[in-house]
Nucleic acid binder design. Structure first.
Length: 302
RNA sequence: GGUGCCAUAGCUCAGUUGGUAGAGCAACGGACUGAAAAUCCGUGUGUCCCUAGUUCGAUUCUUGGUGGCACCA
């Protein structure tokens, strides 16, 4: 059976370099599991692999979308599952690397079958939310899907709205479409997690933000500023600089805010990853130990 | 040097007519099934600057310090 090796970890932990080395040893391309590196216009702020790094190892799902393109975890699942059989023709083991929790989950465990939401329906509900607040939409959900109404976080407008959308699209209660089950995949999955002590991680994150600024993040943000309403730009590193452009912060405060939000994001990632018992954890410097683990426990030829 | 004001959570500050205190931000913990770098939820013990007094009881009033700010010399 073929194998999907997943290397994951919080932002700034040092995934890129380690993954390049391991991919070279395995002669495998890298499937990037990163919801923002997908976008062509955001290479600096998302710390996307550089042209030179992509020369070393071919990457999928990096820099291939326009900011206005719709994408989702489910789309990612579909795309990766379609791509893997092709890659498995030449590679027994394929590496997927990234930090987007839900994207990784979608590939490893699958997401329930749900309709793609009609753009106008979402717009209508969002407008209603803005004008009248969440209360009427909540009430709608109580009628359409009382079960889910009692489970959902009623203050989380995205969850409430999405449930209503699905009910309206399908004519069925959203909760009836949630199977709560894991999809069986046609390949083995090995999960390696990368961690660092918090002090060490925070230092790296802070330093990396400074490096991004030196590399031209400000200009990158300015170039995409006209599209700031797009979901792709609701992203750490951009939204703070947009606030700076609008005079809400001075530049230094904006940079501090980027560091802070990156730290918070890294913690949210760890909160998610920590509860996954399938992950075996290593420090990014422990490349030899990781290879040994892959050889001895999983019988990967590396 | 003199006078006045201030000193409370990591930061900015509120408050206690004397019964040991609470907001915002930060920090930390958590949730997460087609927007996920999104979205949402939860957590507040801190020598109330120090000292001596008054008092059953002082962070609160009084004395004397220390530090900061402002004004006058």
């Amino acid at each position: 059976m073929n194998t999907l090796l997943v290397i994951l970890g919080p932002t700034g932990v040092g995934k890129t370099e380690l993954c390049l080395n391991i991919a070279e040893k395995l002669y495998t391309p890298i499937i990037s599991a990163d919801s923002r590196q997908l976008y062509k216009a955001l290479p600096i702020g998302t710390a996307a692999p550089t042209a030179a790094q992509q020369q070393r190892v071919p990457h999928y799902f990096v820099g291939q979308l326009e900011l206005s393109d719709y994408y989702s975890a489910s789309q990612f699942e579909e795309d990766v599952i379609a791509l893997l059989p092709w890659l498995y023709q030449d590679h027994a083991t394929v590496l997927m690397a990234g930090g987007s929790m839900m994207y990784i989950d979608a590939v490893c465990n699958g997401i329930d079958e749900l309709p793609t939401i009609d753009e106008n329906l979402r717009k209508d509900l969002l407008r209603q939310y803005k004008e009248e607040g969440l209360e009427p939409i909540r009430n709608q959900l109580r009628l359409l899907d009382p079960d889910f109404y009692h489970q959902v976080d009623l203050k989380n407008y995205k969850r409430v709205i999405h449930a209503v959308e699905v009910c309206l699209m399908t004519g069925k209660p959203y909760s009836s479409l949630r199977t709560n089950s894991k999809k069986q995949r046609e390949f083995n999955i090995i999960k390696i997690g990368l961690f660092r002590d918090r002090d060490e991680l925070y230092k790296r994150i802070n330093l990396r933000v400074d490096q991004m600024m030196e590399a031209g993040l400000l200009e990158e943000a300015r170039n995409v500023y006209p599209f700031k309403g797009l979901n792709a730009l609701n992203t750490v590193g951009y939204k703070e600089l947009f606030s700076y452009f609008e005079g809400e912060y001075d530049l230094n405060s904006a940079i501090e805010k980027i560091k802070q939000n990156s730290r918070i994001y890294s913690r949210k990632q760890m909160t998610w990853f920590k509860r996954d018992p399938e992950i075996t954890w290593f420090h990014p410097a422990e490349e030899a130990k990781i290879c040994e683990h892959l050889r001895n426990i999983h019988h990967i030829g590396i």
